[in-house]
Amino acid sequence: MYNLMADILINVCIAFLAGSLLLGLHRKIMARVQSRPGPPIIQYLLHSLKFFFKESSFPKTVSKPFYLAIVVILCGIWVTAVIVTNVVYGSLLLIFGIYAVHKIVEHNSGSSSGSPYGKLSCVRAVYSAASELPLFGGSILVLYLTVHTMDIGQIISYQAAHGPLIFAAPLAALMFFVTIITKAPYSPFGITLGKDIISGFETEHFGFLRGFIMISESMCWYVLLWLFLTLFFGPLSIIGYVIGMIVITCITGLISATTPMLNPNHSVMSQMTITLIGVVGSIALMII
């Protein structure tokens, strides 16, 4: 008999484990491109577990409920995203809302701790949110204009009947792919976590809270990759998803290894340019 809670728990565990292994693979690919052996593939998972049992003290400048709540909210929203995508095949608008809240969490982690590095990252996160949300929103908008629905289940049925959407809406796929690149570690758009501010908004969340953030980020990576494959490559089997996720992770690893980190202005301008080209170009393609 179908048990909804068991389905949710299985999907959350898969999201955590698969996301961690994929992020470890990303780091391995980056290292191999740079002619280094790199860490083992499970390194991300081992780090998450190691941090989980380390000490996490609360500096006197933090606002303690906020400092803890922000980390709980980050996990809550990505558990919601796993439910909306893998269990219910629900609406893309909810995913857009979750992504927006994720940006807010990045911003607020920086400001909740009272650290000067966190505050600087918080300001940079405002820039990045202003450019990444239109990028993701533009991709969903073009998808809506192509298939006239925001429901993931209906998009899957549409693709079963009409073929993969990557051919019908290639610019939407490009915008979604650039969104995935922005979420990758060491990405060209990763200025909020630049080394000049140590680790940006994550600086003051150390120890067990850092392990918790890493767990939520691995679920985020899995959900975004799953969405990309589902929305643009049609109904896939589990093997299809596994191979697709490994391929996307290898491509983002290659991109992260070979590109410099753009400063906030360049990062915002390049993302806005891609959004403009994507949306205007798709509308032009539909009219012509």
Partner: peptide
Amino acid sequence: MSIMIEKLYLLIYLIVFVAGAICGLL
């Protein structure tokens, strides 16, 4: 229901992969 069973198998494969990786590393 069959999708849930497939996902359960996938979870078991992931756990076995991680266990093998840890053993290999040790």
